[in-house]
Design a protein around this nucleic acid. Structure first.
Lengths: 102, 102
DNA sequence: TTATATATATCGGATATCCTATATACCTAA
DNA sequence: TTAGGTATATAGGATATCCGATATATATAA
């Protein structure tokens, strides 16, 4: 039995990959940039142990690539395959949550 | 390593509770009604083993209650606590996914 | 050179989601 | 009263998400 918090109905898991693709669809970013943007949106900053494995999985799937590397800072961008995956996921997202925002 | 499908970036887990609260915030429904509505939205119908444990958890958390029972058909509705949880989650959802739909 | 801050990386594990399979209860029609 | 359809229920387990702790590499400042 999941333990819902006092006023929380869910933890919105499973959306991290989608959000990363969304952010990268707007502009290339590196890991910490993505983590900071997610902190602004969700209210809590994903830890290194969350963000880097997620990036690795998406890269492994061919959805993003390292665009530039300066020191340890790696800038990621979407591949065409990643853009396609994002658009498909976005359609599904839109249909699923139709009416929630309004 | 998660196995992303050929064109799928994520499975959007973790939103089931939120979606159920959303649907019930519009009108009371019973389990199968909720499952059918989710089928229309997501494209696949959640199995009994998915929907009933989810309802049980939300009921256990005090977010919904059995409003009516006719035969085996149980109609659920949100409690005030559930409405509050939904509104909080909705605000967070809106802020998190700002700009995705547009 | 040393110290500090930043960015990336990975392991191990806790937790939640979700499904398959199975069982039960109720209704209606024949 | 028997059969078929519908709705609910739960156990068991596969899988994925996510985080805490820890380690490494680079750049910069003192």
């Amino acid at each position: 039995m999941p333990r819902y918090g006092d006023e929380e109905c869910c933890d919105m898991r499973g959306m991290l990959g989608f959000l990363i693709l969304f952010l990268l669809s707007k502009k290339p970013m590196h890991g910490q940039e993505i983590a900071d943007e997610l902190a602004k949106r969700r209210g809590d900053k994903p830890s290194p142990g969350t963000i880097y494995p997620a990036l690795k999985s998406l890269k492994y799937a061919g959805f993003l690539r390292e665009e530039e590397k300066v020191g340890k800072t790696i800038t990621y961008s979407l591949t065409p395959r990643g853009m396609k995956a994002f658009h498909i996921a976005k359609r599904r997202f839109t249909r699923t949550f139709l009416g929630v925002l309004s």
